[in-house]
Design a protein around this nucleic acid. Structure first.
Length: 675
DNA sequence: CCGCGGAGTGTTTTT
DNA sequence: CACTCCGCGG
């Protein structure tokens, strides 16, 4: 144990050694939270606690994998520690105890798009389209329903606060919520919220809860500030009989309020758990003091008082963070790509640099520029490749094999066939629903559509495919067969089918690693695989690790030597939608704090003023988060805009002269005024 | 009833 | 500008 003392500071050590009872660890950014979890697990295992009785719940599966891998490197027994996200843990639990809760053996997990589809179908089934008044769109409806569940509130309250215009539809939406729940149950479908709801329900059963707490005697929850009420309830139930629970988090880094995260979970933890030990980690091991000075100013500017002042444990003061101004996004991208390349040539690996942004679209000009310069990069956040049409098309075939009641999967599969649209697919779906196994459907339902209609030959082809796949047990072979079948459809549907085929080939590689179709599909919905390295026409050398581009949300918990923060304009960051609501601006502000604290040695902020939105060119001001004396004084202000813009440059960036609102001079004045 | 094309809308973060 | 929804022609 002397070993531990050498590797940890006193508060970290205290957290590591607090094994029994409830413990709350408030861990400031970069304060060695990962280290604490790593060594705590190790310490427990070395004190002869059974590793299989430890459960580590994290925000992403990647995070738990990383922490457990580190612990395992010290002691191989740590390999048996159980870890994952709340959602994946809930899935495991439900599979194991499906019968107890009245579930069928097999059920499917819906992704967000599936849920929206289902909501749409429920709206149609209830005839909620009112000719007179405008009924909310499916996205809105889903977010209301989801909000009710995740925030533990009522339709009325959500409408009042977030969508007052739709208050008159309160009853309809409540009915819709019921219908949607019913719809899912009838078809063995679970959405993300259901995973948590049913897990919570399951844990309310005394027998199950007892069994589970016999299995897991030590619960650890990371990123507790981003859990919602359901997740807090689950954590509580899990620790009910032994009370051995440690939660780790930072209230200043709560950035998932939009998803129902309840950051009071962390503040009220001591109230809810008797005799809770509270440990604060405040020493920062990540960043230079210059970066922390900026981060502390950001904290100061927030409404809520976050009781933290980060102090660097590092000896070096470091460079002052910089801020760079550009006229437009292309110049910003150009400069940034050049800068990254320059540093890379000087010996700073691409893997040690990252570009962060509020919204994915902000990074598009940069992606183009990086491709042009042949710099390999990897994008996190934004549209996932498993959400693209071709991937969903293919996966739907696997879905109906796994769960023949999956109406959404069937609808997608059927509508791919020529001659089948919404009406016909509905008709076939109805017929399919009257059988319970796939074999039966293929034999009885599909036979009926054999000759009569013009789409019959297509149905026949589908029938043959599914018959084959049903008899095949190897997932690789199943996948290949589906891909062969889908290829002509893909070619017909997309001009860029060649690129998309690449994705599907990648997907095949991933699929081969599974031996249960159900697990493959569940993993796919719950734990998305990364989109892989995007590098346009350039193939990187094997050993060259790519540059990271990431949304700030996806960068949570990570760190890089150099961090670039792109697009710091008001309306972009904070996003325009948040401006009407103080709580939302506050969350954006915390997001800014998260972004700033990702950097170890160097931080460069940048922004561009001209932007084209909805075809109208507009001038963007510097972000309100930056435009404050205490922030600006912590920054090294670099030359403003490009000193020698000539008219050629302006026309070369596709700027429509007629719609330019500001001329060069007034633009310059606008920009310089803030100093 | 399918499927195409035009009009209109609204543009975030994620399990 | 991209995606969705609606209306019309085949």
């Amino acid at each position: 144990m002397n070993d531990l003392k050498a590797k940890l500071n006193p508060s970290q050590l205290e957290a590591v050694q607090a094994i029994y009872g409830p413990v709350l660890v408030i861990a400031g950014a970069g304060s060695g939270k990962t280290r604490v979890i790593e060594y705590r697990v190790l310490n427990m295992v070395q004190n002869n606690i059974d590793p299989a009785s430890i459960l580590l719940l994290t925000f992403t599966r990647e995070a738990s994998r990383k922490m457990l891998a580190r612990a395992t490197a010290h002691d191989s027994r740590c390999k048996s520690v159980d870890g994952g996200t709340f959602h994946s843990f809930a899935y495991k639990l439900l599979k194991r105890y499906a019968k107890v809760i009245g579930f069928p053996e097999s059920f499917s997990i819906m992704d967000e798009a599936d849920s929206l589809d289902a909501v749409q179908r429920c709206v149609a089934a209830l005839n909620l389209f009112d000719g007179e008044k405008k009924f909310p769109k499916k996205d809105t409806l889903k977010s209301i329903i989801s909000g009710v569940i995740n925030k533990n509130t009522t339709v009325g309250k959500i409408l009042e606060k977030e969508y007052p215009d739709f208050f008159s539809f309160k009853d309809d939406i409540e009915n819709l919520g019921k219908k949607y729940a019913e719809y899912k149950i009838e078809r063995n479908l679970l959405d993300y919220d259901d995973l948590l709801i049913y897990a919570k329900l399951l844990l309310e059963n005394e027998i199950v809860r007892k069994k589970i707490s016999e299995r897991y005697k030590f619960i650890m929850v990371d990123e507790y500030q981003d859990t919602n009420k359901l997740q807090a309830d689950i954590a509580r139930s899990l620790s009910y009989s032994h009370n051995n629970i440690m939660v780790v988090g930072d209230d200043a880094q709560s950035i998932y309020g939009f998803r129902g995260a309840f950051h009071e979970n962390i503040m009220k933890f001591p109230e809810n758990f008797d005799k809770c030990k509270i440990i604060k980690l405040e020493e920062n091991y990540r960043s230079t003091q210059s970066i922390l000075d900026l981060a502390n100013s950001v904290l100061e500017n927030m409404q809520n008082k976050y009781s933290k002042c980060l102090v660097s444990a590092r000896q070096d003061l470091g460079e002052k963070p910089q801020i760079q101004f550009f006229s437009d996004a292309y110049r910003e991208a150009e400069w940034l790509a050049a800068k990254i390349k320059e540093l890379c040539d000087e010996g700073l690996d691409l893997a040690d640099q990252a570009v962060l942004f509020r919204s994915s679209y902000i990074s598009i000009p940069l992606q183009a520029e990086l491709s042009k310069k042949g710099i390999p990069y990897q994008v996190f956040g934004g549209l996932k490749f498993y959400e693209t049409a071709h991937v969903k098309d293919l996966m739907s075939h696997l879905k109906v094999i796994s769960n023949p009641k999956d109406e959404l999967g069937w609808a997608r599969v059927l509508m791919l066939l020529e001659g089948i649209g919404p009406k016909t697919s509905d008709k076939i779906l109805k017929d399919i629903a009257s059988y319970s196994t796939l074999a039966e459907i293929l034999e009885k339902s599909f036979e009926g559509h054999n000759i009569k209609f013009k789409y019959s030959p297509n149905i026949r082809k589908l029938q043959q495919l599914l018959k084959y796949v049903l008899e095949e047990t190897d997932i690789g072979n199943q996948f290949s067969k589906v891909l062969d079948y889908y290829l002509p459809i893909l070619k017909n549907k997309f001009d860029d089918w060649n690129l998309r085929l690449n994705d599907l080939e990648t997907l095949k590689q991933i699929s081969c690693r599974y031996d249960s179709l159900e697990d493959l599909l569940a993993d796919f919905a719950i734990e998305s695989p990364d989109s892989g390295v995007k590098n346009a026409e350039y193939t990187p050398r094997e050993e060259e690790k790519p540059l990271t581009l990431s949304t700030i949300h996806s960068a949570k918990g990570l760190e890089w030597t150099n961090v670039y923060l792109l697009g710091l304009m008001d309306g972009v960051f904070p996003v325009s939608f948040s401006l009407g609501d103080e709580d939302e601006i506050e969350e954006e502000h915390r997001l800014f704090y998260v972004a700033v604290t990702r950097a170890k040695n160097n931080l460069i902020l940048s922004l561009h003023h001209e932007a084209s939105r909805g075809g109208i060119n507009q001038f963007n001001k510097i972000s309100r988060f930056v435009d404050r004396a205490n922030i600006l004084s912590k920054l090294n202000k670099q030359a403003i805009i490009d000193p020698d813009i000539d008219d050629d440059d302006i026309s070369s960036c596709d700027f429509d002269q007629d719609t330019v609102i500001y001329d060069k001079k007034s633009l310059y004045n606008k920009v310089t005024r803030i100093f």
